[in-house]
Design a protein around this nucleic acid. Structure first.
Lengths: 353, 353
DNA sequence: GCCATCCTTGCACGTTTGTTCACCCGGCTT
DNA sequence: AAGCCGGGTGAACAAACGTGCAAGGATGGC
């Protein structure tokens, strides 16, 4: 993977500057001058198809940036309300209510990936959790050139067996590539079997170095896990947790997790025994990051989201419209008809949010 | 929805907020989530056509902003060189060399109109010259909401007889509309017949008020006139000047004008008699504006542009590629095969400009 | 030097998008 | 009430666009 990644960094910027220059020129002609691709092809002495591809490249590589400004008089009621109620900056992604959870996640992740660039800058350390949301995001990142940035993995992971979830290394690499950042992997499982192993590991110098990075990070990016929802977060599908673990979580009142660390509805974590074996950062550490961006999609994660908000983990929230509406609609949970239960029994094929 | 026609200002912003909201949502779905218009039509319960129109509206009204970032390692050699040689920020508009002057002007104007938004802000006074370049720009402005801004006409004008050049009032109105700014017309001819009339007029209180505004303006926007070029600027077509005037200009060494005020190649204006009858601001006044944006297209205007640069009139230059290249290529003029000559002989039917 | 491989190109096709047209609907005039 | 707008709508068509594919060229290993 080394030799492969060593060069492609230059691929877009230097080794083929001609391509980038052409793309830039094509973008000018297309987006600033409204020429047709045909006309551009003619000006560039190439074919229309190539122009189409050049423009795709220009968009995908961040040469062209498309942003949407709400006129200041209607700045999305919901975002406004979330800001007031939770003191959290919100991006509400419009997604129709009837969309499937997969669609919803994809669309939120796509939008989130495009928004992310605004938060990332040079000389920053960016902490990234491992999960299905991050995985989906990683596929759509828009590159942005930064210097001296670092991407650090927040929690361990096994390999992703679930469809579409990508290995942690691959995921991190994508983020790193997109921002030209160094990548710090965290090669541990999501959960240790034995708390003692974790403690021992935490004393290792290599681990300490990584934890140090986590403590100094400027931006944290994560989703929330929702162990008791109809569509459990991938962490719960990968076989990381046993039935006994779920029962423990249920008994201890956990409603969700951020980067494998579980919390209750009120945001507290103390006494949740599984956390002894988790690999993600303690919330006290997480909260040191000035920017903490949370990406959530699906009403199933509502309770988790509420908990994460209560824990003060979030400074910026990217969330689908339905969930956002539910979030502001009523303070308590009127969502789940049944009370918590082990997810083992759930096989309901209902895919409505 | 109260009174639809009563207040056209509200038409786009408040009286039909539904349309703007739909446009906004469509834009999100299209540009952030890459949905097809079909899909969006379905989500919005309308037809594809309407979505297409909605998106057009979103772009035309500035809801969607498309910007192009050069990667910092290749910031257009030419722009860089112009910055170094003339201490002027440049936007070079790519236009093929074989394009007609009309095309060239249109394309530069289109790009310029889209760039302009970056320079305009609230609480500003924006001075605008009257000419073919400004006219072309006025047709493509992207609205940007500002408060308490003012658009003030820099020089007088007759009515535009040349095809495609629009009345000064219409031109100003377009700028004013685009930025939600008040408009201050300057109802005088481009040139007075008698210097004395001008002086008298300048003593009028209403005139003084306008001149006051000009002195306090934050942004000036203008083209350059090129009286001795193959394609004379409109000012020279409208019958404003007589053959004798041209001869005088020629004798006195004028190479161009900004807002009806003429200058020599070295930027000097003293002793150019026509300026006694001009209606545009003295360069000393013009130079008070912190931002002075000049839009130029066509090599014919090269000498004028050089003069305007020498006069220190320009802080930001928007120029087509060919002219930019010529500008940096050689210090002197190697452009015009023939020396200056009176344009009276020119009746080339090559279309307006 | 030669081959395997990867990347790029232009064509051809199917899809997506812009635009014209006929039509409808509410408002205001006569 | 009839009649004329101006603005908006969807159907249909033409233009513009994206992409799979096969061919051509470069690159690097052997």
């Amino acid at each position: 993977m080394n030799e492969q990644t060593a060069i492609p960094v230059e691929d877009g910027t230097e080794s083929v500057p001609g391509k980038t220059r052409d793309a830039l020129r094509a973008a000018h002609l297309y987006y600033m001058q409204d020429l047709t691709m045909d006309a551009i092809a003619h000006e560039l002495h190439t074919s229309r198809s190539s122009v189409s591809r050049l423009l795709s490249h220009a968009r995908a590589s961040g040469l062209v940036e498309i942003s949407i400004h709400s006129p200041l008089d209607l700045p999305s009621r919901i975002e406004q309300e979330i800001l007031e109620r939770f003191a959290v900056g919100a991006h509400v992604i419009p997604v129709p209510d009837h969309a499937s959870d997969v669609d919803r996640l994809d669309r939120v992740a796509l939008s989130a990936a495009r928004i992310l660039g605004r938060y990332v800058d040079s000389n920053q350390t960016i902490g990234i959790a491992w999960g299905s949301t991050m995985s989906a995001m990683s596929r759509h990142l828009v590159p942005k050139a930064t210097h001296n940035s670092e991407v650090v993995q927040l929690n361990g992971a096994g390999n992703g067996r679930t469809t579409g979830i990508v290995y942690a290394s691959e995921l991190l690499r994508r983020f790193g590539d997109a921002f030209g950042a160094r990548v710090q992997q965290f090669p541990v499982p999501a959960f240790f079997d034995d708390p003692e192993t974790r403690r021992a590991f935490w004393r290792e110098r290599s681990t300490r170095r990584l934890l140090d990075l986590q403590e100094r990070m400027d931006v944290a990016l994560f989703g929330v896990g929702s162990p008791f929802a109809e569509v459990p977060s991938h962490v719960y599908q990968g076989g990381y947790l046993e039935r006994a673990d779920y029962e423990g979580l249920s008994r201890e009142g956990a409603v969700g997790d951020v980067a494998t660390v579980f919390y209750r509805a009120d945001g507290s974590t103390d006494g949740i025994s599984l956390n002894e074996r988790a690999t993600g950062p303690d919330f006290a550490v997480l909260r040191r990051a000035p920017r903490r961006i949370c990406v959530v999609s699906g009403r199933a994660k509502l309770a988790s989201l509420r908990g994460a908000l209560a824990a003060g983990l979030i400074t910026d929230l990217i969330v689908d419209e339905g969930t956002a509406r539910a979030l502001v609609e009523s303070p308590g949970e009127q969502e789940s008809p049944g009370e918590r239960e082990s997810p083992g029994e759930r096989v309901s094929p209902k895919d409505r949010e």
